[in-house]
């Protein structure tokens, strides 16, 4: 059982991942992942390359069937979506396959009848915003233009749920800007839910309101950005004992821990300073002083990413 630091989620659920496991041969891509994504939120699905992000998204859109567990999107198991339900779910992958011989206009004309809510005005707005030539064959588009075309085709159906897999990878800043603003064209839609997989939080930090973090196929953290910003802090413990060892295995709630001399620094969620103080004091009885300091999001995610290395050599000082 992997310890997961999860948010208190209220309101309707758009996506429910329940105990999902998936293997490619002997490689475990996802291990017992459970998370509930509330309707109307934008979630960053973070993790290193190979952490299982793409596999999870492909399970969520029904491209892969989990070996165990189930992903329910808009109330239906992803493996049993009807065409009508599928039309309410958008998906943009990093290397989106597009029919290269078609022009953008031809492709849009082919797609539109498949989607009851295809929004021609929105397609026009996005095409103008992205400065895409509708008369051009898709194979003649640059990498960035292909991504923009893929996003246009995913947004024009006005999906209730949009999944994006590394949409910004390898694109320049101006194209990224356009893509983000394109995504936000739909922000007025009622209860619109977005999940964006990325290995880099910095490009999503202002856009998302929730973060889910995968490491080695396990969900390690699922939290709102507000909580991450406000409640994840460093506790600086002056233990009163030189060369004090870090506990092994690490307590689940410790995101990160470092020791130097008689000091131990622990990154953890602090909702009640006195309670945290008491817990650390009982672990280190000779403690003279505990101070708290703000942690950056980078601190938190470095801690979570590093854990996959520490898991095999427990107690190693980081």
């Amino acid at each position: 059982m992997s310890p997961v630091i999860a948010p208190t989620v209220t309101g309707a659920t758009a996506i429910e991942v329940a105990n999902v496991s998936f293997r490619y041969g002997r490689t475990v891509a996802l291990h017992d992942v459970s998370l509930r994504i509330p309707t109307g939120t934008i979630t960053a699905l973070l993790g290193a390359n190979g952490a299982g992000k793409s596999t999870l998204l492909q399970c969520a859109v029904g491209l892969l069937a989990p070996d165990a567990g189930d992903v329910r999107v808009l109330g239906t198991s992803a493996t049993q979506l009807t065409p009508a339900e599928r039309a309410r779910i958008g998906y943009v992958a990093e290397s989106q396959a597009l029919p290269g011989d078609l022009t953008l206009a031809q492709y849009e004309r082919w797609l539109a009848p498949l989607y009851p809510r295809w929004d021609h005005a929105l397609a026009d707005t996005l095409r103008a915003r992205f400065a895409l030539d509708p008369a051009r064959q898709l194979k003649a588009f640059s990498r960035g233009q292909r991504m923009q075309a893929a996003l246009l085709c995913a947004l024009a159906p006005r999906p209730d749920v949009l999944f994006m897999d590394e949409p910004f990878a390898g694109l320049d800043a101006a194209i990224k800007d356009d893509l983000v603003r394109g995504v936000l064209e739909l922000s007025g839609s009622e209860g619109w839910t977005v999940v964006i997989a990325s290995h880099d939080l910095s490009e999503l930090e202002l856009l998302v309101d929730h973060v889910a973090f995968l490491a080695n196929g396990r969900l390690r953290l699922h939290q709102s950005m507000d909580t991450l910003r406000a409640e994840y802090r460093w506790a600086d413990v002056h233990t009163g004992v030189r060369d004090v060892p870090l506990p092994s295995p690490r307590p689940a709630e410790w995101v990160r821990a470092e020791s130097a001399g008689a000091r131990v620094r622990v990154l953890l969620r602090v909702t009640d300073e006195d309670a945290t103080r008491a817990a650390l004091q009982s672990r280190y009885p000779n403690t003279k002083r505990i101070t708290f300091d703000d942690a950056s999001l980078t601190d938190v995610f470095i801690g979570l990413a590093r854990e996959r290395l520490d898991g095999n050599r427990q107690g190693a000082n980081t």
């Binding site: 942690a295 980078t298 995610f301 990413a305």
Partner: peptide, 9 residues
């Protein structure tokens, strides 16, 4: 791993 966010402490 390349998890990063701009802006430190």
């Amino acid at each position: 791993t390349t998890i990063s966010a701009e802006g430190g402490g």
